[in-house]
């Protein structure tokens, strides 16, 4: 009886690993494909015949680092993304605290207005944004990218953090008040630590959106001083060399790596945060 049960348990475990392994392979396949394209000679990529044993080449790797200021693009991307997430958190945390914990006239309308900024097509505001940044002398700067990424992501960062704050028992704040804490202390010492998984979740999603942002980056950045990875991809198309697929694949892979590393590093918080968010609605 026991051995039968052990056998059945072992089979069920193998099946589970097979299913999960298959799913993992399915998810990783595009990434591995990109990497494989990036590490092959250009001639092999565009051939019509399938190649079963591709050759390995670092041509694209050397090209992107030697012929293009890729380090600057990477640095611009990281600086703009980190800066935008910091701006988002500085603005979104107090806004979410206010929307979730205080009662005042028009509170729900303000909350809806913040969310509604995500409801229009970004292209609608592209021209006004261009003129705005030009008038402020911010065109082609990292600062402009930080501000625009922060503006794009602020609404959902606020709403994600707000949904976590709504779930914190009111008693915690009441206890802190009777213990002698003021509003700022309560926010800093009680509320923020309690919603940390939500803050991390919102930050990671904001990072992913920011690194993928193309329209406004193309509009604002016109030189390598402000080019980011997403815009760099367009450098490898339309020139005299045609579409350089292996370079595009490698740059896309490089853009994927920092976000992937961040997600791996905070995986525990992120999975908890996403699950909690799902329950809160």
């Amino acid at each position: 009886m026991t051995s039968q049960r052990k056998k059945a348990k072992g089979e069920s475990l193998t099946l589970r690993y097979l299913i999960l392994g298959g799913w993992a392979l399915f998810c990783l396949a595009p990434v591995l494909w990109f990497l494989s394209i990036g590490l092959r000679p250009r001639t092999e990529i565009i051939t019509a015949q399938p190649i079963y044993f591709p050759s390995f080449s670092l041509d694209a790797w050397h090209m992107i680092w030697e012929d293009w200021p890729m380090a600057a693009y990477l640095r611009n991307s990281i600086a703009a993304i980190i800066g935008s997430v910091i701006i988002d958190l500085v603005l979104a945390i107090p806004a979410a605290y206010s929307l979730s914990r205080f009662s005042y006239k028009g509170r729900d309308d303000i909350g809806f207005y913040i969310l509604s900024t995500r409801m229009m097509a970004p292209a609608i505001v592209a021209v006004p944004i261009f003129f705005l940044f030009r008038n402020f002398g911010l065109l082609d700067t990292i600062w402009a990218l930080m501000l625009i990424y922060a503006a794009i992501n602020l609404s959902f960062v606020t709403w994600i953090i707000r949904s976590y704050m709504l779930d914190i028992p009111k008693e915690l704040e009441d206890a802190a008040k009777t213990d002698g804490a003021g509003e700022i202390r309560i926010l800093w010492e009680i509320i923020i630590p309690a919603v940390l998984p939500g803050i991390i979740t919102a930050s990671v999603i904001a990072m992913i959106f920011a690194i993928n942002e193309f329209l406004f980056t193309l509009l604002i950045a016109s030189t390598p001083d402000a080019y980011t990875m997403s815009v760099a991809l367009s450098n490898f198309t339309g020139g005299s060399d045609g579409v350089i697929y292996n370079a595009i694949a490698l740059v896309a892979f490089l853009a994927f790596v920092p976000v992937f590393l961040v997600v791996v590093a905070i995986q525990k918080h992120l999975s908890r945060g996403l699950t909690m968010g799902a329950l809160k609605g």
């Binding site: 028992p169 008693e171 915690l172 009441d174 206890a175 802190a176 008040k177 009777t178 213990d179 002698g180 804490a181 003021g182 010492e189 009680i190 630590p193 309690a194 940390l196």
Partner: peptide, 19 residues
């Protein structure tokens, strides 16, 4: 204000700071 009154309160749900 509550924070300036010399009272201490114990709550039904304990209200201990989880962090």
């Amino acid at each position: 204000d509550a924070r300036d009154r010399d009272v201490a309160m114990v709550f039904q749900g304990y209200a201990l700071y989880p962090n």
